[in-house]
Amino acid sequence: MPDDKKAELIVSRQVLSIPQRFATGPIMGRFLAELLDNRRIMAVRAPGSRCLLPPREVDAVTMQEAVEWVEVGPEGTIRDFDVVYYASPDPLTGETRDVPYIICWVDLDGAGEGAPLWHLLDAPDPGKVRCGMRVRAVFNDERCGCMEDIRHFEIIEET
């Protein structure tokens, strides 16, 4: 066998994709329906426990079912945030987002401190974002019953 052929190393490049049907179950289902129908952010909690947001079936700390619904937000306080400079593909769409963008953890009013909501923050100057800033959820006009029905959070300008 000629040597030049030995050198070729074969690679197979492909996008692997499997269509999925993700069930919401009753709890996430109600959370998403409230975003869709009422622009309301709803958390759940087990009796006497912290809020869970996004809502989940069970409070991992108490191992009790989260059965009480609590309306929270749409305003809240930035607990933490990240300014992202690294572009990566969204594995649900394969699309890559423009950078920089900001992701934030928001303690929504009424949710207490155990359940910051994880979302995007729209701020004109990432350098001026600080923990503790007040923010508000901005809903899309066209909604589909998904987390992205909240387009992002925006900073409430101090007056």
């Binding site: 197979s12 490049r13 996008v15 993700f22 009753p26």
Partner: peptide
């Protein structure tokens, strides 16, 4: 069940496999 629904989505990511020498 009235609160339940199903969201169509996919799992899609790029891969590159190497056959080796």
């Amino acid at each position: 069940q009235q609160s339940c629904f199903v969201i169509e989505g996919r799992m899609a990511l790029p891969y590159q496999y190497f056959a080796g020498a």
